[in-house]
Simulated assay, not measured.
Amino acid sequence: MAFPVPKPTMDTSDPMPTTNTFVRTSHCNDLIDDTCKGTPKPVLCVSVLRADPRSEGGDVNDFAFIMVGEVEVKASDAMQQIGRLSKTKPVSDCRENYVVVVRDDIPQAEDAAKGGDAGKATQLMNDVVGKADSCERGFHGRSLLTKWNNAVKDFASVAAALSSKI
């Protein structure tokens, strides 16, 4: 399994991906479709994997690695938004959660996905879902981060499902 260096380049101004597909082999499309069917967000999964050239000829490990990278993009977007908000307690709590996500959880999940450690990669992505959910709950229904938290939760839940298939 080879992992080229470039990260996916999706539009980060919108927390949900845009489709940027290119021609692939039938086998690759079938594997992506079949693999994504078992995720909580199959349309998101297919869209992201088909848009990323690293998925061509890839396997489930590659797909999990790609999706973890997308979680990093979304978590970084959330961090940027957090930086624009006033320093209230909920915002500070979210910042702490997302610092851990970006600094610790994502790099460890990438290593676990590369190394074929399904349990660790899955647990780390589930932890990310929990941290984004905790951030959202901290605002008690008045969150200014809902769209970013939801994007992180959506991508991380797909990454967890893909990681569990390694």
Results as ranks from 00 to 15, higher is better:
77 D>R: 10
134 S>W: 07
165 K>L: 12
94 C>V: 06
14 D>S: 14
104 D>E: 13
154 D>N: 14
24 R>L: 04
46 V>R: 13
97 N>P: 05
142 R>Q: 11
64 A>K: 00
14 D>P: 06
122 T>N: 13
11 D>Q: 13
65 F>Q: 07
56 E>G: 07
87 K>C: 00
87 K>G: 02
46 V>Y: 12
137 R>H: 01
13 S>A: 04
123 Q>P: 01
23 V>T: 02
58 G>Y: 08
34 D>E: 15
82 I>L: 09
67 M>E: 02
16 M>F: 00
57 G>N: 09
50 R>M: 10
103 R>P: 04
73 V>F: 00
27 H>W: 08
26 S>L: 12
46 V>N: 10
60 V>H: 06
44 L>D: 08
97 N>S: 05
82 I>A: 05
129 V>W: 10
19 T>E: 06
63 F>V: 06
147 K>V: 07
119 G>W: 14
126 N>A: 07
8 P>W: 02
153 K>P: 09
155 F>G: 01
142 R>P: 03
94 C>I: 12
14 D>I: 02
80 Q>I: 01
84 R>A: 11
114 K>H: 07
100 V>A: 11
45 C>K: 07
103 R>C: 03
83 G>S: 03
12 T>M: 07
37 K>E: 06
77 D>L: 03
123 Q>E: 10
137 R>A: 14
6 P>E: 04
138 G>C: 09
142 R>V: 03
156 A>C: 05
51 A>M: 05
95 R>M: 03
166 I>Y: 09
47 S>C: 14
91 V>S: 13
148 W>Y: 12
84 R>M: 11
132 A>I: 14
109 A>E: 14
163 S>Y: 01
35 T>Q: 09
158 V>I: 08
115 G>H: 09
36 C>N: 03
91 V>I: 15
38 G>H: 08
157 S>V: 02
140 H>V: 05
68 V>A: 09
67 M>D: 05
98 Y>A: 02
9 T>K: 15
35 T>V: 05
76 S>K: 11
83 G>K: 00
63 F>H: 04
96 E>C: 01
92 S>G: 03
158 V>E: 10
34 D>Q: 12
128 V>Q: 11
85 L>C: 07
45 C>L: 07
148 W>E: 11
52 D>R: 09
5 V>A: 00
43 V>A: 15
163 S>R: 00
115 G>M: 11
111 D>V: 00
27 H>E: 14
53 P>F: 05
54 R>K: 15
119 G>L: 04
107 P>Q: 01
112 A>L: 13
11 D>M: 14
9 T>V: 12
157 S>F: 08
23 V>G: 02
101 V>M: 08
70 E>P: 00
45 C>Y: 06
65 F>N: 12
35 T>C: 13
100 V>R: 08
145 L>F: 09
47 S>G: 10
16 M>A: 03
40 P>V: 04
37 K>Y: 00
98 Y>V: 02
112 A>N: 10
135 C>R: 09
93 D>C: 01
120 K>T: 15
126 N>C: 01
